[in-house]
Design a protein around this nucleic acid. Structure first.
Lengths: 332, 332
DNA sequence: CAAAAATTTGCAACCGGTTGCAAAAATACT
DNA sequence: AGTATTTTTGCAACCGGTTGCAAATTTTTG
């Protein structure tokens, strides 16, 4: 039913190899033959089967894209950028949803079966078990938005979360806040841990200590609200550093619902600078993470790894910046 | 390097067919042989290549998932549900981003090359050219969230947008509004057109006409804001039916920025009931679209089509419902 | 113009599985 | 026991491409 290389070869009056070569660039074909093949292909409506090619070349042009947070809209931006960037290179994302997945082996198994050329893990926290499983399966893996784990053996493209924590602290102090709370993402997330470290460090260096340290149960809106409710019930602070914009929005909504004003009564600084952060309902001051750069770079890295699997372990860090909007009181 | 079926066959002391059969259920193998094969496979860490299998069986277990709106967070919910539901059936989504794509042929080409078993188009508007291109390529296609086009030849799973438009109108009238505006998505979107028809129809049946009809340039926040700004500059209405929650949020933010109150000065009713719609900053009254049902059903349909390509054209419609929250004034 | 060099071509084996068919083995029946 | 029936097995061809190698062709050179 489908038209194959052989059909084209017959119509063009050349060998099957000739047709194949006409479709692989860099191959040795005369112009004359190529023209004949192209003509025949057009007449028959031929398009080569990537499956068959994959079998022969052992390359699928498939990149596994692993994600475990489909609640945070920032991942939609991430998917958008990934799919587009991959498409431009003639690659395709094979989306894997780890949201309710617990068994690393099984996921690896799947990716292996599809013979993906490489894997990009786009999660803030890569369970160590997964990292190991991928490595063991001899798949090129890069962990985007990850942390440079000391003992780890997976390539990382991301940001320096400690430095970002410091930036947030610096911004809050500069705006004249003293009585500050830290409201992070889940405590087990390395990203959260690092941001906390940098944040505390900087405050410490300037003779302060956070009035409250607290963790949302997830990188999500409701988790942010819940944590903020608890915080408000216990004490009063001047400003809050939230480990994620979505958490921040939840916290702000909770704050406003309880009758307080932002930034009049409490100031907020978030993290990520997702598209929604500039909505006027929030207009968040936030630490901006350069996701375009991270995504571009992680694709380049995984592609390079496909060519050169034994490449030296690499960690690529991109700088963040503070975007000042209106959730902090004006500079003194 | 990779361990193949032949290796397993050798170790187990059986033929290659035996190994193959051990892995296809329903095949004729004795228990004894299967045990031997399983043991050998375990020892070698064998996992069969889907690529090779695909070549032989002409089935890839890949479903093309086409989307063209990565700006609207509702699609993150959609992706989440799709990836999970497909995974459960042992299928994988091959994500295609049409956002900046104009040439249907090229996209079809791609999906053909990967030999996807079927295609799910998850866009509110399927450009007719795409529909035709897929059909011509003899791919099972289901248009989720689509409209039952009269002359079309693609299966559809979605909602009755006209009925939904009527529901919105009914809700607004019931709440005592008279001076009502329609703020739809892009005018070319069939979903928008249908919602408008139903909306106008119902109002007409109750002796009213909208005070304003207007279309946002996209199903997005900023587009909603811009359209609302124009509306406010021109006239004053009591309530607005927005063609999408995201548009509605933009419109609400614009309204509030201009000093008006919701629902005090202007009431809003949205469309979709995305996760964010219940955030307290908006707490939208909205028409709920049953996306879980649509997604589940569209997968079932595409799977059925793979088995039976010449299946009669089908249109599956799920009912919507109005979720009342706080963006309309209380019932009189 | 012939010989040497460079380019193009086709053959045939291979990638890693599946499957129809006939032979072999196991089970049922008289 | 021997024969008929059912189940299991291996052979070999096939899925749709790629690629090393040697032969055929074209181009360059003296």
């Amino acid at each position: 039913m489908a038209v194959t290389l052989k059909d084209v070869a017959n119509l063009a009056g050349v060998s099957r190899s000739a047709v194949s070569r006409a479709y692989t660039d860099g191959a040795s074909v005369s112009d004359k033959t190529r023209k004949k093949v192209e003509k025949a292909a057009r007449e028959l409506g031929y398009s080569p089967s990537l499956i068959a090619r994959s079998l022969a070349t052992n390359r699928t042009k498939l990149i596994g894209l692993i994600a475990n947070n489909f609640q945070n809209p920032i991942f939609l931006e991430v998917f958008d950028l990934y799919t587009q960037a991959l498409q431009k290179r003639g690659l395709r994302p094979l989306l894997v949803n780890l949201t309710h997945e617990t068994d690393p082996e099984q996921s690896v198994q799947m990716l292996r079966q599809y013979n993906v050329d490489g894997v990009i893990v786009a999660t803030s926290t890569l369970p160590p078990l997964f990292a190991k499983a991928f490595k063991d399966a001899h798949m090129p893996v890069v962990h985007a938005f990850g942390r440079a784990q000391s003992g780890s053996d997976v390539h990382v493209v991301g940001i320096d979360n400690q430095a970002c924590g410091r930036m947030a602290a610096e911004t809050l102090l500069r705006h004249g806040y003293r009585d500050i709370a830290f409201l992070g993402g889940p405590e087990f997330a390395t990203s959260t841990q690092d941001r906390a470290i940098g944040f505390l460090e900087y405050l410490g260096e300037h003779g302060t200590v956070p009035s409250d340290i607290r963790y949302a149960s997830a990188y999500g809106y409701q988790a942010g609200r819940d944590a903020m409710r608890d915080l408000l019930a216990e004490k009063r602070v001047e400003a809050v550093f939230c480990g994620d914009d979505l958490i921040c929005m939840g916290a702000m909504d909770e704050t406003r619902q309880s009758g307080l004003e932002v930034p009049g009564d409490i100031g907020f600084i978030g993290f990520n600078d997702m598209a929604m952060s500039q909505w006027s309902a929030y207009d968040l001051t936030t630490v901006r993470q350069p996701i375009r750069d991270i995504i571009k770079s992680s694709i380049e890295l995984v592609v390079a790894l496909v060519e050169e699997p034994e490449r030296a372990l690499e960690v690529r860090i991109f700088p963040c910046s503070v975007i000042e909007r209106s959730t902090l009181k004006p500079l003194p």
